[in-house]
């Protein structure tokens, strides 16, 4: 008994006091900053990118493909690519994940973009069913971490549940393997409408490093509209929490 009290006292508080204002320490690689003015169009970045996420002309990165590995930054002789620690990367639309030359500044999702029905229905409580469809366990571990004592996403009423019948939405990770395509579709169908679809990690959003593989069947995403895209490889827990809170319109209420 006293041992346990000692352990708890020693452990202290480990929770992140305010996940919506927290930042990630360097050298974490978050939103890239591109400098077309410095770029010499040597295309070395294209040659090293493992996910075909970057183009040199125009200088752009698709965060839906990017695995934030930083290989392009390493390869760039001109210093035109720099990954910042900005972890707030989620977007409501696929196009909004493209950043760089000639693209309007990748703004945070605007408050008025939040669908009123989502805010009304899920703003105070959101239960999600997670499906890994070929995920490498990276995003899965980080989604699991969202509920741990550090990040404690449950404080916002957002939780993962076991049964799709209890869920308000599905969170997909992985590039959707052929062998998992039917189970993913079944799980989606088992969630009662209205329901949300959230794609987490570059694999779910675009196939990521597995995009060229013939073992994938990504038809699920042709048939169902994604409500929230959360980039990363894997997605950091703070990135996910930030994105979900924006989606349900609870972000501004909390700040």
């Amino acid at each position: 008994m006293f041992d346990l009290l000692k352990i708890r006292r020693r452990h202290g508080w480990t929770f992140v006091p305010d996940p919506l204002r927290a930042s990630v320490i360097p050298p974490f690689r978050g939103r890239p900053e591109l400098r077309p003015d410095l770029c010499t169009r040597c295309r070395r970045c294209e040659g090293v990118c493992p996910a075909a996420a970057i183009t040199a002309e125009p200088l752009r990165i698709d965060l839906g493909r990017c695995i934030l590995c930083g290989d392009c930054q390493e390869a760039c002789p001109a210093g035109a690519i720099e990954f910042t620690t900005e972890h707030r990367l989620a977007a409501f639309g696929r196009e909004a994940l493209i950043t760089g030359e000639g693209v309007a500044a990748a703004a945070e999702p605007a408050a008025d973009a939040i669908r009123a029905d989502i805010r009304r229905l899920f703003g105070r409580s959101l239960k999600l069913r997670q499906v890994s469809a070929g995920g490498c366990n990276g995003c899965e571990m980080e989604l699991g971490a969202c509920g741990n004592v550090n990040f404690d996403m449950g404080r916002y009423g957002v939780e993962f549940v076991a049964s799709p019948r209890h869920a308000d939405g599905v969170v997909v990770t992985g590039p959707v393997s052929e062998n998992m395509a039917a189970a993913l579709e079944d799980t989606w169908r088992a969630v009662p409408a209205p329901r949300l679809l959230i794609a987490v990690g570059s694999c779910a959003i675009s196939g990521g490093v597995f995009a060229p593989s013939p073992a994938l069947r990504r038809g699920f995403f042709d048939g169902h509209a994604v409500d929230l895209y959360v980039p990363g490889c894997p997605t950091h827990p703070l990135t996910f929490i930030d994105g979900v809170m924006r989606l349900i319109g609870a972000h501004s209420a909390q700040l």
């Binding site: 090293v48 992985g174 393997s177 052929e178 062998n179 998992m180 597995f210 593989s213 073992a215 994938l216």
Partner: peptide, 18 residues
């Protein structure tokens, strides 16, 4: 269920470039 064809992807391309 998780088969993504990793080995075939590692075999792609003639030589492993940087």
């Amino acid at each position: 269920y998780q088969h993504r064809g990793v080995e075939r992807l590692l075999e792609r391309d003639a030589v492993p470039a940087h």
